[in-house]
Amino acid sequence: MEILRGRVWKYGDNINTDVIFPGKYTYTITTPDQMREHALEDLDPDFRALVKPGDFIVAGSNWGCGSSREQAVTCLKATGIAAIIAISFARIYYRNCLNSALPALTCPELIPHVEQGDEILIDLKKGQITHAEQHYPFPPLPEAVQELFAAGGLVAYTRQRLQIARGQGIIRS
């Protein structure tokens, strides 16, 4: 897995899914391309216009709290956000990220040192973030999750693994 390099969008604590992707759109806006247009709409009006593929979000604690809507992950992925680093994540948001192949990294030591617009490097395999020549470790992603990422998410991953298992005669039919 390659090393990611990108710019930081910095936010605070307890950012809920309503401001990441407004609830009023959940039944009318359905494709990732449409969702992208409303990402962080109520949190940071500049984000949508200025975000570039490969950028990162760096946040405080409990990022993604509130409703379990998956659009709050999909919309950010659609903008090209390459990873979210936080002090902590809401449980379902965290699972939705990994199942959508979006790295969600818990690295409390890094957060106070990073400012909006800073550049950081993420080595997913090694479990290390580099910022201003300082290294900050995070628990590396285990092989199972790296495979899930390589496949592009849980649904695609399951489909792939099923095919492989069938080929090897490990599972029935």
Binding site: S68, I92, R95, N96, L98, N99, P142, A144, V145, L148, L154, V155, Y157, T158, R161, L162, A165
Partner: peptide, 16 residues
């Protein structure tokens, strides 16, 4: 766990 996660367990027998 979520519904897609449950479907994945049904298929593969495991989950992270």
């Amino acid at each position: 766990i979520g519904r897609s996660e449950m479907a994945s367990i049904w298929a593969l027998g495991k989950l992270w």
